[in-house]
């Protein structure tokens, strides 16, 4: 998972994709890689897992060997125009920015390509060994991953189209780029994950690396049969709760092909603690 250069981490909202992104970044930097973690549409989750309040658009060091940033659209648009489209200095960029602003509100793909353009640009710059992206949730993922295709269809020629094609090639290059999907062993996250896998099979805009199952309960060394003989009370209720949830989880676990299982982490209070402990788990897994 850490041998690609650009790894997108996505999943249904709330399954822990920011925690997985942050913990993979921590693991990679423990192993000596220079890592950049990118919060693509909302950096608050990622920031919390690195123990900071917010992340800026410029990379800041969050751990030794790990830098992180959040993509803010206005700054990304400006950078896209100057660094990616190489709009000449003589061009009044104020008018261009304004015009593109109009476009971003209405034309499909503009906002998305500017946003996904940032991590791809960082990949091209090769300042890091690994760029890990806390990507948008599954519901929005494809409008970002497909943005280069959408734009290339919309604009017949010129720098935007060239740039879009280049981006499309980088995203689809399985040596460079991959996608990690995070799910929890529950109905809706698993069904959405499977729908995403089906879609990637039809539209191979990116290569799937792995599906990670998060918050998996361990088997309880208690025979379900004896619970009925126990007196009513919290011991019995908690055991019943665990066993019932465990059974449901195992059912949904069967519905995804995955060997990467992250345990339910009991009793941890801060997001920073979650990421560190998850990185320890990763260290044993991969």
């Amino acid at each position: 998972m850490l041998d690609r250069k650009l790894v997108f981490v996505s999943g249904k909202g709330g399954v822990g994709k920011s925690a997985v992104t942050a913990s993979l970044a921590l693991l990679a930097s423990r192993r000596g890689l220079r890592v950049l973690a990118v919060g693509m549409v909302e950096g608050l989750g990622l920031a919390g897992h690195f123990g900071v309040d917010r992340l800026g658009y410029s990379p800041s060091q969050v751990r030794s060997g790990t830098e992180a940033l959040t993509v803010y659209r206005d700054e990304a648009l400006d950078e896209y125009l100057r660094l990616q489209l190489h709009v000449p200095r003589a061009t009044p960029t104020k008018i261009l920015t304004r015009a593109l602003d109009v476009l971003a509100e209405t034309a499909p793909g503009i906002r998305e390509i500017v946003t996904i353009g940032k991590p791809v640009y960082e990949l091209w710059q090769s300042r890091y060994d690994l760029v890990l992206v806390d990507a948008p949730p599954l519901g929005q993922l494809f409008s970002y991953l497909r943005a280069p295709n959408t734009i290339a269809d919309l604009v017949p020629a010129g720098p935007i189209q060239r740039q879009a094609n280049h981006m499309r090639e980088s995203l689809a290059d399985s040596e460079l780029t991959s996608l990690v999907l995070v799910t929890t062993p529950e109905e809706l996250p698993v069904l959405e994950t499977r729908a995403t896998l089906d879609r990637i099979a039809v539209e191979p805009v990116i290569t799937l690396d792995a599906v990670v199952v998060n918050r998996l309960l361990n088997a309880l060394p208690i025979d379900a049969e004896i619970l009925g003989d126990l007196p009513e009370g919290p011991h019995r209720a908690a055991a019943e709760h665990h066993l019932t949830t465990y059974r449901q989880q195992q059912r949904w676990l069967q519905a995804v092909e995955s060997e990467l299982h992250l345990p339910y982490l009991f009793g941890l209070h801060t997001a920073g603690e979650v990421a560190e402990q998850m990185a320890d788990v990763w260290d044993e897994l991969i």
């Binding site: 309880l220 003989d229 126990l230 007196p231 919290p234 011991h235 019995r236 908690a238 009991f266 009793g267």
Partner: peptide, 26 residues
């Protein structure tokens, strides 16, 4: 809560306590 009146093996008793402690923490 104390686990009273439960006639179970010591390993089960420990497992029940540990499990409640996990969920109680949650």
């Amino acid at each position: 809560a104390a686990l009273r009146g439960a006639d179970v093996a010591a390993t089960t008793r420990t497992a029940l306590r540990d499990n409640l402690s996990n969920w109680a923490g949650e």
